[in-house]
Design a protein around this nucleic acid. Structure first.
Length: 711
RNA sequence: GCGCCCGUAGCUCAGCUGGAUAGAGCGACUGACUACGAAUCAGUAGGCCGGAGGUUCGAAUCCUUCCGGGCGCACCA
């Protein structure tokens, strides 16, 4: 543009941000107080009345965005561009007309036309900064319109948890924290399929491959418990033992000569049926193993600060005959019908979601049969997985008319986790009957999930179907390099692929506890180098906080639809876009107050006494634009929370935390806060650090990441 | 064959109801520790946003189509 641009314009000092849109959609979440949201709403309302009186226009969704750069102001609208056609005027002329008659608006310093016809709004910086400093954004009213139920983790209780399960649990646990931050009451469930083929496989392993009796299995479990307790090594525990046994059994079941293979498959099937039926030695082994492994899963997740309220089990869904109650309802509402023709003859079936939009009212005959229908009850009278899932989800919404028995299972520091049982304790909390449910299940299960939703809708439960969210995410895979490093035999044709799917069946994957141990060891190394003045217990605590922060952030920074190609190099990194980077920003901010012998609260109290004119003058200076930008970022917390919730995307908040940390680190380098000689400026700098610190701690907390005192 | 997801810098990913000059991290190359700790910061290089059409004042974003990759589509659980 200009050829004589000797020095960069002052505007380039402010960090450029992508243009961000503000949505007004509220999907049943409580809207938190936010400086940004309040100003946006005020501006939108003001412009709407202006457009009505000036042009007689009713604009429902008036677009207001956060411009990509501070030199365009703090809020902007492209409304003039949109109106150009209907008003048959150039956008710039419309924008000018609007700005000329816009008048004064509380909180705003002025408006101007820019670019092709944008209307940019500038905030009154001193009042903006004061309200951000004062806003205790965590203080929403605690009552919530929606009682939510989040189901996550749901690992088959037959082997150790792996990194894929970690993504599930961390996503689910973080989403719970976000819902609670927005004021919702949330129950956390972890569904336990203790009667499926996976458990059956391990039971086959114990009984047939290893030839153990129930008593011997009991001894193995007890031995594992003792060894693991003594050594503190997860590798000694029962879930690791089962990991290998499961892989061996899977191999056994799918190998052998034709005759042998058939016999082995039959053994597996018989075992499965014995477990489902219950009341026999095989079922007792299954119960023993699945319960011991489940306990290990809860311990593993507790290392990541992940807890549960209730563990509904498949065995109770079977034995309490949830399906019978659901079957009646499904027949009465016509969702299920008995097929008399075609390949599904003799089955109870339902139409699939994608299929014919209207039930085809064909003439009876071969053409009227829906060959693509989903079988719910087999011709032999047994129910399929989807059928049981429909029953379970009717219970979740309180529509089944039956309930579990409940007994305590696992004690957390602050509460009890309950498990389903046939005949439970008389006094117990009530689960189920939620208004909104979120199922954290990987995207491979979207078809069965859609079937359940379809069934609910067909039964007339449309409100429930609308509040049923399949919180889907892509899998965690291994890079070929990582797989080779772990010692797996990777076929030549797979080595050029971007990633290879993990498989519990093949025993191919990275175990959760192993990864956590590696992370803690690596962080402890770093802490030992830096924290020479602290005792061992303190160092270990810090190392654990950093390791968990690294792991949780690693799993949260990817959006749900992206496949994570796992590599130890990335997961063990503590630099750049990582949890420790954000935690380090917190530690630096804390150190300022420690060295300055003051506190964030004291600083903010002092800041409140500063004259508005003084603040306005300081924030207008060219060299202080980054400070104002940091305040604006800090003010975006509840805005981002809302976007995160409506999109069911925790990654938005993870990115926000990182950006905030990045801006703070930049600010930290540019301004020598404690040495600042101008007292007013020093107060402003300290207040900036205080607000950044407050925001970082809160957002990290929402992500389930602790803020260490030192690192 | 049908359905869903993905394709943006050397690599890994953001870019959220279409909007101003497409952004990070890693890796590479230059610099900055006598300041509140360098797990940090500043800078340089690196992009026909898979291809082609279309809608629009305006497209990485919406539509169509093709190409490439992944995952699902059982009376299994």
């Amino acid at each position: 543009m200009t050829q004589f641009q000797a020095s960069p314009p002052p505007e380039t000092l402010c960090p450029a941000r992508p243009s961000v849109k503000i949505t007004l959609v509220n999907q049943g979440f409580q809207r938190p107080i936010s400086v940004y949201l309040a100003l946006q709403k005020r501006l939108a309302a003001h412009l709407r009345t202006l457009l009505k009186s000036k042009y007689d226009l009713d604009i429902e969704n008036l677009p207001i965005e956060i411009p990509p750069d501070l030199r365009f102001g703090e809020l902007a609208t492209p409304i003039a561009l949109q109106l150009a056609r209907s008003l048959r005027k150039a956008p710039k002329i419309i924008a000018t007309e609007i700005v000329e008659s816009i008048g004064a608006l509380e909180g705003f310093a002025g408006f101007e036309v820019a670019g092709a016809g944008y209307i940019n709004a500038r905030l009154d910086r001193s009042t903006g900064v004061k309200s951000i400093a004062a806003a205790d954004l965590a203080q929403h009213s605690p009552k919530s319109p929606l009682h939510a139920l989040v189901e996550h983790t749901s690992i088959n209780p037959n082997k150790a948890a792996h990194i894929g399960h970690l993504r599930n649990a961390i996503l689910g646990d973080t989403f719970v924290r976000l819902l609670r931050a927005a004021g919702s009451k949330v129950d956390i469930q972890n569904y336990i399929d203790n009667t499926g083929v996976q458990v059956a496989d391990v039971v086959v392993g114990f009984l047939h491959l290893e030839g153990k009796s129930l008593d011997e299995v009991r001894q193995i479990v007890a031995g594992c418990e003792q060894r693991a307790a003594a050594s503190g090594r997860p590798a000694d525990a029962i879930d690791f033992y089962c990991w290998d046994l499961y892989a061996r059994t899977s191999q056994w079941c799918t190998s052998g000569t034709g005759e042998e293979n058939a016999a082995r498959k039959q053994v597996r099937l018989d075992t499965l049926h014995a477990i489902e039926h219950g009341g026999n030695e095989t079922a007792a082994v299954a119960e023993l193993i699945s319960t011991a492994v489940l306990r290990r899963h809860l311990e593993t997740m507790l290392r990541l600060d992940i807890e549960y309220d209730f563990l509904p089990r498949e065995s109770e869904i079977l034995h309490l005959k949830f399906w019978d109650a659901a079957f009646e309802q499904l027949k009465q509402t016509g969702v299920l019908y008995f097929e008399t023709e075609g390949k599904n003859k003799g089955c109870w079936v339902m139409t699939r979601p994608g299929a014919a939009t209207e039930p085809v009212q064909d003439q009876d005959g071969p053409k009227g049969t829906d060959e693509d229908a989903k079988v719910i009850v087999r011709s032999n009278g047994t129910v399929t997985y989807v059928g049981k899932d429909i029953a379970y989800h009717l219970w979740k919404f309180g529509l089944l008319g039956k309930d579990f028995g409940y007994k305590p299972f696992f004690t957390y520091p602050n509460h009890e986790c309950w498990i389903s049982t046939m005949h439970g304790e008389a006094a117990h909390p009530h689960f189920g009957g939620a208004q909104a449910i979120y199922n954290v299940i990987d995207s491979r299960q979207s078809d069965p999930q859609a079937n359940v939703i379809q069934a609910l809708r067909g039964m007339g439960h449309t409100a429930e179907a609308d509040r049923y969210t399949h919180f889907s995410y892509e899998m965690v895979a291994l890079t070929p390099r990582c797989a080779i490093d772990l010692g797996y035999n990777v076929p030549e044709e797979d080595r050029s692929r971007a990633y290879i799917e993990v498989s519990g069946r093949k025993g191919f994957g990275v175990k959760a506890d192993d990864l956590i141990d590696k992370l803690i060891a690596a962080t402890l190394d770093e802490v030992n180098k830096r924290q020479t003045g602290r005792d061992q217990a303190e160092r270990e605590k810090i190392a654990r906080q950093i390791a968990i922060g690294a792991l949780r952030y690693f799993m949260l920074k990817y959006t749900r639809n992206s496949v994570i190609a796992f590599d130890f190099k990335d997961a063990l990194s503590f630099e750049g876009e990582t949890g420790p980077y954000i935690q380090y920003a917190v530690v630096r901010a804390r150190n300022i107050f420690r060295k300055g012998d003051t506190t964030a609260d004291a600083v903010l109290a002092e800041f409140a006494q500063l004259a508005p004119d003084t603040i306005a003058e300081l924030l207008a200076r060219v060299e202080n634009q980054d400070i104002w930008a940091l305040w604006l970022s800090a003010a975006r917390r509840s805005l981002v929370l809302e976007q995160s919730l409506t999109a069911s995307e925790p990654a938005y908040l993870a990115k926000h935390a990182f950006q905030l940390a990045q801006e703070f680190n930049n600010f930290y380098h540019r301004h020598h806060i404690l040495n600042e000689e101008n007292p007013a400026l020093k107060t402003l700098l300290l207040a900036t650090a205080a607000v950044a610190l407050r925001e970082l701690i809160v957002v990290l907390g929402w992500l389930g990441i602790e803020s260490p005192e030192a690192m």
